[in-house]
Simulated scan of single mutants.
Amino acid sequence: MSRLRNRGWVLPASFTLALLFGLLPLPELLLPLRPYWLALVLAYWVIETPDRVGLGFAFCIGLLADLMFGGILGDQALRLVVMAFILQRFRARIRFFPLSQQALAMGGLLFNDRVIDAAIHLLAGERLLPWSYWWAPLLGMALWVPLYLLLDALRLGKRRR
C-alpha cells in the first residue's frame, strides 16, 4: 500500500477546514485581516500535487466558497482559478524555492488576489474596500511556512522523533 493512498483524507479535510475558517465569525475590526485560507490551501495542493488539484478543482471549490460565503457568484472562483493558473505556470520554479522565498511569492499572489477582488467589487458597483483590507496578504505570507510544513507532514505522514 502506498503511503500517499493512506493519507487520502488530508486533501478534503484541508479544504473543509479552510472553508470553515473562512466562515468563522470575527470581530468587525479583524474582518479585513482574515487570511484567505482557501487560497493558501489551494496553493499548497497545486504546488505539491498538480495532478490532483488544477484549474477545474479551483473553479469548483471557488463556486462552493461563493455559495457558502454569500458573495458575488463567481468572485472566488475567478480569483482561485487565476491563482491556480499562475501557480501551475511557475510551479517548477516555486517548488524549489526555499520556504522563505515561497512565502514572498505567496505574498505576491495574495496581493494579486486582492487586486482582482477589488476590481470585481468596483465593476459590480459595490463599496470600495477599506485600506486595512490590504494587510491580509502580509498575514497570509506569514502563515505560509507553518501551513506548508503542517500540510506536508500530514500528507507524507512524517512523525516527530
Rank of each mutant, 00 (worst) to 15 (best):
R5Q: 12
N6E: 14
N6L: 15
N6R: 15
N6D: 15
R7C: 07
R7Y: 09
G8Y: 01
W9S: 08
W9R: 08
V10P: 12
L11W: 09
L11A: 11
L11T: 13
P12Y: 02
P12R: 04
P12G: 04
P12I: 01
P12N: 03
P12S: 00
A13S: 11
A13L: 10
S14V: 02
F15I: 03
F15E: 00
T16M: 05
T16D: 02
T16E: 05
L17K: 07
L17N: 09
L17T: 13
L17G: 14
A18H: 08
A18D: 09
A18Y: 08
L19R: 00
L20G: 00
L20S: 04
G22I: 04
L23M: 13
P25N: 03
L26F: 12
P27T: 12
E28I: 05
E28S: 05
E28H: 03
E28T: 06
L29E: 13
L29M: 12
L29W: 05
L30R: 06
L31Q: 15
L31E: 15
L31G: 13
P32L: 11
P32Y: 12
P32K: 09
L33N: 01
L33F: 07
L33C: 02
R34A: 02
P35A: 15
Y36V: 04
Y36R: 01
W37M: 11
L38V: 07
A39I: 05
A39K: 04
L40V: 02
V41R: 08
V41M: 06
V41Q: 06
V41N: 09
L42F: 06
L42K: 05
L42E: 04
A43P: 00
V46E: 08
V46N: 10
I47F: 12
I47G: 04
I47L: 15
E48C: 09
E48V: 11
T49H: 11
T49P: 04
T49D: 13
T49F: 07
P50A: 10
D51C: 07
D51N: 14
R52G: 04
R52P: 04
V53S: 13
V53E: 06
G54Q: 07
L55P: 02
G56T: 06
F57K: 10
F57G: 08
F57Q: 11
A58C: 02
A58M: 03
F59M: 12
F59W: 15
F59A: 08
F59Q: 01
C60M: 14
C60Q: 13
I61L: 03
I61R: 00
G62R: 01
L63D: 01
L63T: 02
L63K: 02
A65I: 03
D66E: 05
D66C: 03
D66I: 01
L67V: 14
L67Q: 06
